[in-house]
């Protein structure tokens, strides 16, 4: 029982750590946006957003502990598909 309490405590601690990390990353992304980074700014803010959402998905949505492959690959598939949709549309829109 005390084992479970301990595990429970460490789980709660990890949730709070992730929450803190998300807030820190939010601060970082707001700060970088006010610097003049030029063209790479969009890449930086999107990279930070990707890290933040990965944290949410892995820890809050518990994908980290997910054993089933079909659930693990769902989000990567959806995002890859969207990336391909955007890429193919880009091949039209930006090449007229």
């Amino acid at each position: 029982m005390s084992d479970e309490t301990k595990r429970g405590e460490s789980t709660v601690k990890s949730y709070i750590a992730v929450w803190a990390a998300l807030l820190v990353l939010t601060a970082v992304t707001v700060t970088t946006a006010s610097l003049d980074l030029g063209k790479i700014a969009i890449i930086v803010v999107l990279a930070i957003a990707a890290v933040k959402s990965t944290l949410v998905v892995l820890y809050f949505m518990h994908l980290r502990h997910e054993k089933r492959i079909v659930i693990k690959i769902l989000i990567p598939i959806a995002i890859a598909l969207l990336a391909i949709f955007i890429g193919l549309t880009y091949s039209d829109i930006m090449n007229r």
Binding site: T29, A33, L46
Partner: peptide, 16 residues
């Protein structure tokens, strides 16, 4: 809903 906002925020508020 949170994750989607995490992307909407930089895309609309943080354009430099």
């Amino acid at each position: 809903v949170d994750v989607i906002w995490i992307f909407l925020f930089p895309l609309f508020y943080l354009i430099s």
